[in-house]
Design a protein around this nucleic acid. Structure first.
Lengths: 151, 151
DNA sequence: TATAAATCCGATTTATTTAGTAGTATATAA
DNA sequence: TTATATACTACTAAATAAATCGGATTTATA
């Protein structure tokens, strides 16, 4: 599974909203774009996808913006990844049910390997929520802070 | 990591040669292409990459063709995958050393996740040799055989 | 020494995907 | 009613994928 710019942007945007989830803050797209160095109009498209999937909601007009519909602890990385990037499987024949790839579909040992890779990948991205990411981000930032302080 | 047609073809071609490795058989590209339903001219390009990497060698002229330079047990899936598909990492910043992706490279929790995914994927594709694939292929074929027999 | 069989190699082509950009419409708070 | 914001559709440029084309070169053998 490759992560495109689009997917990377989506994850950063969701993380941005996750950090503002407490108190039900509404965040305008300009802020998300500027803070994460994402092209504004491109991010619009991405936010519409996230909204269409029910992950975020929005309010128009002055004071409007985007916000998560669920708490960060209930949003898994895998959900966003699948939304933007599509299948986790490295090849279509590794899906369940498998999409036909070759005549040997019933006896192709490669297919088993790709299914293993998909399962391992899914276990990781579905095992992490945005609450986990926020926590880890804080840890990394404070460690980095400390590093500078010691110099 | 996504597997392209090119990568899929390359794996099938190497497996084809692996099955002919005993007795040092030399296999013409036409046979590999026909048996695996791979466009002949496309396969030419792929074989040249494999040869350039020292994985296979070739003999020109009548009676010529391709053959593995090493026994199947000494060729890991990961080697072919990396040759054709490039990096295993789902995003460049997950490489070691990381390629810069965002300003937060030192404190990006996503990067850690992608590194985990890359490690899990690498462990799988580097843990399997073409000898393993051949063995598994035989198992699957005989199981499939048996299945038909029982009807 | 022709000839046929085979690899070698660079260029071109076609389609798809990626990563945006542009422009307009619509909603809403003040 | 105006400024601020999202909603939506369409378009475009660049890169990548998946071949295809047209030969050049090598080699066994008849």
């Amino acid at each position: 599974m490759r992560i495109s710019y689009k997917g990377d942007y989506a994850l950063k945007a969701v993380l941005h909203l996750a950090n503002r989830y407490e108190d039900g803050e509404v965040v305008p797209i300009n802020e998300i774009a500027a803070a994460n160095d994402i092209p504004r109009k491109f991010l619009e498209q991405i936010m519409l996808i996230l909204k269409g999937a029910g992950l975020v909601d929005s309010r128009r007009g002055i004071g409007g913006g985007f916000f998560l519909k669920r708490p960060p602890a209930e949003i898994r990385l895998g959900e966003v990844v699948r939304l933007i990037e599509g299948d986790i499987e490295p090849i279509a024949c590794a899906k369940t049910p498998p999409e036909p790839c070759c005549a040997e579909i019933g006896s192709c040992a490669f297919r088993e390997i790709w299914a293993e890779v998909a399962a391992a990948t899914a276990a990781i991205v579905d095992g992490v929520t945005f609450a986990d990411i926020m926590r880890r981000q804080r840890e990394l930032k404070s460690a980095h802070q400390g590093y500078h302080y010691e110099i």
